[in-house]
Design a protein around this nucleic acid. Structure first.
Lengths: 186, 186
DNA sequence: GGCTTAAAGTACCAAATGGTAACAAAATGA
DNA sequence: TCATTTTGTTACCATTTGGTACTTTAAGCC
């Protein structure tokens, strides 16, 4: 039994629809393995989804952190974020992390803990990014860095979630650009 | 068997958590009725949730349409929307309609149709509101009315959804105000 | 070969899901 | 008063859920 392969299949399935709509039975079937094999490898459904989330974080989410830590300045970083959220083909069916976060109460304890950990890390990354922009004088006062970070994070989550529901990418880009224009107002 | 009472109980249950997390069994239990009684009254789970949504629309959603059709001008209407989304105690656990819309694929055909109907009506109301504002010269060009309407609707949905996840109302108000400030920019 | 040990698979479990057939109780009509 | 229709309940159905005890297969190793 190839653990990596199973994780990939599970990740794709969770990602394409929603973790809550993919049963353990379905995954074993798609992976062509027996249920006890899967339980021996991951312990429980919670263990599996947690492992999937770990994989997703290092394979996909890392890219978002890279953009934030790129040190490219306010405008160019925001543009990169807009490109990623509204244009990247990998986000065509939404973001697995945001799907999990939206269905928090349906997750097992381990996966939930990981979701909150990632959420906190993302918030911290947004804060660091905006703080740097403020220090560089690129971003006007009047809004706390924390509030701005939360706002930025939620707008990106909204944009990606809309992609999952089949909204026109051009429209999503337009709306996200509008939402983030508050950071670059004259 | 009091149909209205059952609808109220179901509405509250669906609303407080999520339609997908409340089973027919749970509702019959809460309402103190037997399952066949419920099925005779509503036909199916889909019939029940559709009836609940109807009730919710006329009891709760109507208020949002009232605000939009109030004809109070851009600024005051936006303020009323912000108050409603981030302050109204009834939205403390989120909006049943948005919860259903977020979990579209889990709904039965009748309920789904009703959700899309309401969604279209809301979009039309936002369009009419913004068109009136533009005609009155209260809102600058540069963004199509349709795009603005979608943006406005999604921002309000986002704010109310955040309330369901326990976010601080003051913070939500701050973010929503920021998001909607694009409509009243000098 | 023969023996041991780890991996995999078969076949099950109890609980919960949406939904219904069959039957008893009560209201309604003539 | 008697027959009929409505209302409600009990007890079930098949299917799916997450999870596991038990048996079979395969790989090492001497």
């Amino acid at each position: 039994m190839d653990t990596e392969k199973v994780l990939d299949i599970a990740m794709t399935a969770y990602w394409q629809t929603d973790p809550a709509d993919v049963s353990v039975n379905a995954i074993t079937q798609m992976a062509g393995i027996s249920k006890p094999s899967l339980y021996r490898a991951f312990g429980s459904e919670d263990g599996l989804s947690r492992a999937v989330l770990d994989r997703y974080a290092e394979q996909v989410l890392s890219e978002m952190f890279l953009i934030l830590h790129g040190g490219k300045g306010l405008r160019r970083t925001l543009d990169a974020l807009i490109d990623f959220a509204s244009g990247d083909p990998r986000m065509e069916t939404g973001c697995l992390f945001y799907k999990m976060r939206a269905g928090k109460h349906r997750l097992g304890p381990d996966t939930l803990a990981r979701v909150e950990e990632i959420d906190a890390a993302a918030q911290a990354a947004y804060v660091a990014f905006l703080q740097a922009a403020r220090n560089a004088g690129e971003w006007p006062d009047g809004l706390s860095v924390e509030a701005g970070a939360k706002y930025l994070g939620e707008q990106i989550a909204l944009a990606i979630t809309q992609r999952a529901s089949g909204e026109d990418p051009a429209r999503i880009r337009e709306m996200l650009t509008l939402a983030l224009s508050v950071f670059t107002r004259p």
